[in-house]
Amino acid sequence: MHSDYQLIQRCLKGDSVAQELLYRRFAAKMYGVCLRYTGKREDAQDVLQDGFIKVFGNLSAYKGDGSLEGWIRRIFINTAINHCNRNMFIFSELEKNEYAHFTPEDVLSELSVKELLVFVQELPEGYRIVFNLYAIEGYSHKEIAETLGISANTSKSQLSRARVALQEKIKKNLKYSVYEQTA
């Protein structure tokens, strides 16, 4: 097993074996990131391809300040954001069921990752990106605002709407009986 440093040095020298090793090491995780940020698998694959090209092109810029995975993940997040439509924050208001009751944890835990992924992918781009950045990556609204070039309030409202939209999707997909019992 190569250390990150050895792997990077070999990649910088143009070692194709090392490049493939690096790709294999992070491809699955980064593909998961891409899937979360994009609506379609084809888009996720485009982002994955672009992201790895950027990683290999900028590998010399990695100074070992943080983990290599974190550095690569940031590249993929930025690539995914750039891949999205720039008009992603213009959406119609969600008009109904905004404050609907949510399902308890035990019901949610029955949902599979694939189901949850589909729900996220079905979100409008703006909701999806803000939700991913906030809920999963742990960005603050201020950081999201700086990253996306929007205001913090916009970020908050996008997150709120994303949550409601996800809630609606989850409710629709849960067995009605279970939902009725808990509602």
């Binding site: 194709s16 490049q19 493939e20 790709y23 294999r24 491809a27 699955a28 995780k29 593909y31 998961g32 899937l35 979360r36 694959q45 994955l48 391809q49 790895f52 090209i53 290999f56 092109g57 949510f102 944890e105 949610l108 835990s109 949902l111 990752v113 949850l116 992924l117 996220v120 939700f131 906030y134 809920a135 999963i136 742990g138 949550r163 996800l166 809630q167 989850i170």
Partner: peptide, 30 residues
């Protein structure tokens, strides 16, 4: 709670990409 749900489920989420992607990446590495 939905944030926690997703954070928990997607913390280490990974999925193998299609094999042909590596060929695309390899040919485009600067």
């Amino acid at each position: 709670e939905i944030d926690n749900l997703y954070r928990k489920k997607f913390g280490d989420f990974a999925e193998d990409p299609p094999e042909f992607l590596w060929d695309k990446v390899r040919t485009n590495i600067p």
